[in-house]
């Protein structure tokens, strides 16, 4: 992003999303008031650790969460449609058509008893109709697009017959089969080997650019985010604590959690010194602390952090942080 104001089109608008899982014993506050926008053609990375609510946000958007024990509040508008009020039929048209998703484990996301080709053909015919032959031609085209070697033969392979990298490419092919406007990727390269991970990342980046898809890419890996993101949203305990253009977040993080995450990521550290780790562990989502959820682990906490959830402040253009310390420093600077 070069900072110039471009005429953009809002593809996705999430307003004040709250997701709670209710059981007899406890209520898990997984997502606590998330606001997110994705423009057409842009890659937003949601960066966070396990339990931060990043995957739950994606699943809420796909309406994949179990209806019985999930309470979803807020508003999700995708390409003009109100996602949370769609009926079953419209929802089916949306999933795989308008928006599709890639998961971390292609082995569990693909059906083991059908060939990968059959699964793509089924998706194509479901959304676009047409003959078996046309759908197979489309599947072959997709396999070539994601650079699967000997694609004709691989269409007839079962998921277990493919290597991890090829399985993930097959899943990407399936996700792209109906040219979705929004692609959701939930840690798609985490389970892959280093030399394969970078191949899949570069492939995804290229396809995203060529097809002009809006993309939400969930990851815990700063390196992955730095390779693919236009913008980064950092999540902690179900809230976005910082958001901004990728270079701003990585070079000039403002929120103490983002700063801690960067300091604790091992990358060419001094071998003689300890890593500056964040003390403690993330809060129990059944019993969130009052005020800022990061306060118990934060070295820079103020009295106000204990009382209220910080409201967003903007230390730079398009760069949001929810932190009283950042707000105070901005006040001093003014």
């Amino acid at each position: 992003m070069d900072g110039s104001i471009m005429p953009t089109r809002m593809l996705l608008d999430i307003e004040d999303l709250t997701v709670r899982f209710v059981t007899r014993e406890a209520t898990v506050h997984a997502v606590n008031g998330v606001n997110l926008q994705v423009q057409a053609g842009e890659v937003l990375c949601i960066l966070g650790e396990s339990g931060s609510g990043k995957s739950v946000t994606l699943r809420a958007l796909m309406r994949l969460l179990p209806a019985g024990r999930t309470r979803i509040e807020g508003r999700i508008t995708l390409d003009g449609q109100d996602v949370l009020s769609l009926d079953r039929k419209r929802l089916q048209a949306m999933r795989g058509g308008l928006v599709s998703m890639i998961f971390q484990e292609p082995m569990t996301a693909l059906d083991p008893v059908y060939t990968v080709g059959a699964q793509i053909i089924e998706t194509v015919r479901q959304h676009r109709g047409g003959s078996q032959r046309d759908a197979r031609a489309r599947a072959l085209e997709l396999f070539e697009l994601v650079k699967i070697p000997s694609p004709e033969r691989r269409l007839d392979a079962y998921p277990h017959e493919l290597s991890g990298g090829l399985r993930q490419r097959a899943m990407i092919a399936m996700a792209l089969s109906c040219a979705p406007k929004l692609l959701l990727a939930d840690e798609p390269t985490t389970a892959l080997d280093a030399t394969v991970q970078i191949q899949v990342l570069i492939l995804l980046r290229r396809l995203q650019r060529e097809m002009g898809m809006g993309t939400i890419f969930v990851t815990h890996d700063l390196g992955v985010a730095s390779e693919i993101a236009d913008r980064i949203a950092v999540m902690y305990a179900g809230r976005i604590v910082e958001e901004g253009p990728v270079a701003d977040i990585l070079n000039n993080p403002k929120h103490p959690y983002t700063q801690g995450l960067m300091a604790s990521t091992v990358h060419a550290q001094d071998r003689q010194a300890d890593i500056a780790a964040i003390p403690g562990s993330p809060p129990d989502l059944r019993r969130l602390p009052a005020g800022c959820s990061f306060r118990p682990r934060c070295a820079a906490a103020l009295a106000a952090c204990r009382e209220r959830v910080p409201t967003p402040v903007f230390p730079a253009a398009n760069h949001m942080a929810r932190c009283f310390r950042v707000a105070a420093e901005m006040g001093e600077g003014a």
Binding site: T265, I275, A277, P282
Partner: peptide, 11 residues
Amino acid sequence: LDKSVEAQVLN
């Protein structure tokens, strides 16, 4: 382990 926890355990 998560990155922030990984750093603690490495230390």
